[in-house]
């Protein structure tokens, strides 16, 4: 409730990193982290939708669901809002910036079923964050996601040159790299004061 903005940011980016510590958004993580370009596109789309979804879900939860006693509809309304927002963002980008649409376009439909987005908005309501805190948490979670995606994509691109046993190629290899990354996040970033 009384978390400072600094602690929310550190938590979102490092200590409670969505991908490596909380296991949210892993499908997209193993799916599009093969090359830096698509990883960057996916991360930008996620960051963008996360911020808008945090704002929209806060308003809906506080001014619609809570006063009317409809909190049992939380999940269903959030997922509909996210699906709607993703469509809207897709239309707007296609209209105003075709180059951006060409690079982000294929990732946008995937975002509706990305658990990181729904995870952020549900965590916001569970932690009872206020408006500024919710938005801040959305931004930090998105930044943490972006950072890990780019790290992972860079490592995977370079590790193509490594010869591994046939059975380990592909996904198992990606998971082993993730193990090391995750250990770094869990062990080192816990010393940051929150």
């Amino acid at each position: 409730m009384e978390d400072s903005l600094f602690s929310i940011a550190v938590n979102g980016i490092f200590v409670q990193n969505f991908l490596l510590v909380q296991f949210l958004g892993l499908c997209s993580f193993v799916g599009v982290s093969k090359e830096t370009k698509s990883a960057a596109g996916m991360s930008a789309a996620v960051l963008f939708v996360m911020i808008i979804a945090s704002i929209a879900s806060f308003l809906i939860y506080t001014y619609l669901l809570l006063p009317m006693g409809l909190t049992f509809l939380t999940t269903i309304s959030f997922i509909i809002v996210i699906a709607f927002l993703v469509q809207l963002v897709e239309f707007i980008i296609r209209k105003f910036s075709p180059p951006l649409y060409r690079s982000l376009g294929i990732f946008l439909p995937l975002i509706t079923t990305n658990c990181a987005i729904l995870g952020v908005v549900i965590l916001n309501t569970r932690l009872e964050y206020g408006f500024v805190q919710s938005v801040f948490y959305g931004i930090s979670a998105g930044l943490g996601y972006t950072m890990v995606m780019l790290l992972m994509a860079a490592i995977r691109e370079k590790s193509n040159a490594i010869k591994v046993p046939e059975a380990v190629e592909g996904l198992p290899h990606a998971f082993f790299i993730t193990t090391l990354l995750s250990m770094a996040f869990v062990s080192y970033f816990q010393v940051i004061p929150t």
Partner: peptide, 25 residues
């Protein structure tokens, strides 16, 4: 304790998947 931490989860699924792949090959 490592196995309970997130790293352990990634390692376990990596090893299991490698075993499944090995069997398939």
């Amino acid at each position: 304790t490592f196995m309970i931490l997130p790293g352990g989860a990634f390692m376990t699924i990596g090893v299991l998947m490698a075993m499944v792949n090995y069997n398939k090959i």
